[in-house]
């Protein structure tokens, strides 16, 4: 059902929703960019339409809202432990179609990967509703069309921000509320049908490509900073940390914290052995996981084509460029075999 809301009505709607929901959207945080006098576009809580940064892609994905960077799993004292409280409120996340597809991948990892369901992830995930921000145009480095993540169906709400108003397509659950704040309007969702970048995904990859010299270039270019993986909406690796409080080491907490296959230490074993010491190997592992290995296990590709990895790489390494290189080599390598 379609509705149109002016800015004030939309803020009223948000105010009403905030009684039941924590509401997050991409926001512009002034002066918090890494470079001096630049802004950071990242997820934050909002209470008005104006706060939503609609015209720029967020540097970080919304995954941190459901799967926090640092998450305390439990606190422990000498003979007891206790899980931290979880907010009673549900969550609304304003995000792009590709981001919703990314959560499907995270669901796969945390909830459907074998018999085990990750209760910490599930506790927040099941209370989460997505309000889709319709993309007015493809951003730089996006290749959602190639990854089939440009369209989304079955959403709670899809919003098209315009001059001082928002046009929305809303499901049955939210329709009465939107009807109260807005006027009925025709709304046919528009999805991105073309990106300036497209990738060709390799069907089959011969293992010989693992040793191909193409990865050497990345060994010299990549600095293993990890930006690509922390900005990726689908990366889900974490590590565990047991903290003993400085003032009283008899108490502490167990945390899980994001990890990155690009960063030093990820494959480090006792004695200093590591499986992927050179950065080209890390790049290979990451790329293969996103466009091949995940597919072998779950039947579809992990990468959603948001292009954030390319946006944030300080060395201007292109993930999509690398995928296309792999695809063009996939045939050749096999022929040589």
């Amino acid at each position: 059902m379609g509705y149109v809301l002016d800015g004030q009505s939309f803020d009223g709607l948000l105010s009403q929703l905030s009684k039941e929901y924590l509401i997050y959207a991409p926001v512009r945080i002034s002066g918090k960019g890494a470079y001096s006098d630049t802004d950071l576009v990242a997820y934050g809580q909002i209470s008005s339409l104006d706060e939503i940064e609609y015209n720029e892609k967020s540097r970080f994905s919304p995954k941190e809202l459901i799967y926090p960077i640092t998450q305390t799993l439990f606190y422990f004292t000498e003979d007891e432990y206790k899980e931290p409280a979880v907010s009673q409120k549900s969550i609304i996340i304003f995000c792009r179609p590709c981001d919703v597809h990314a959560f499907r991948r995270l669901d796969e990892i945390f909830l459907k990967n074998g018999d085990f369901r990750d209760s910490y992830y599930e506790a927040i995930r099941r209370k989460t509703v997505f309000f889709i921000l319709e993309c007015a145009g493809s951003f730089e480095n996006c290749f959602c069309v190639s990854m089939g993540t440009n369209r989304v169906e079955g959403y709670a709400a899809l919003l098209r921000p315009g001059e001082g108003q928002v046009t929305c397509d809303v499901d049955e659950h939210f329709a009465p509320l939107f009807a109260r704040y807005g006027k009925p309007a025709g709304m046919t969702p528009r999805f991105i049908e073309e990106n300036s970048i497209s990738v060709i995904l390799p069907e089959e990859i011969d293992k010989n490509i693992f040793d191909h010299q193409m990865w050497q270039e990345y060994s010299s270019r990549c600095t293993a900073c990890g930006r690509c993986t922390v900005s990726c909406p689908t990366c889900s690796c974490f590590t565990m940390q047991d903290i003993f409080y400085e003032d009283n080491p008899r108490c502490g907490e167990r945390r899980r914290v994001w990890a990155s296959c690009m960063v030093d230490g990820f494959t480090e074993l006792a004695g200093g052995h590591g499986f992927r010491k050179d950065n080209g190997s890390r790049m290979r592992f990451k790329v293969m996981h996103k466009i091949y290995d995940f597919r072998k296990r779950f039947g579809y590709d992990m990468c959603v084509g948001c292009g954030r990895c390319d946006d944030v790489c300080p060395e201007y390494i292109s993930f999509s460029g690398c995928v296309n290189k792999v695809s063009s080599l996939a045939g050749e390598v096999k022929k040589d075999d």
Binding site: K32, A34, L40, A42, F60, W258, V263
Partner: peptide, 12 residues
């Protein structure tokens, strides 16, 4: 530190 931080844990 801000320039090196991948997650914006360090900001200005």
């Amino acid at each position: 530190c801000v320039l090196k931080c991948p997650t914006s844990a360090w900001t200005r």
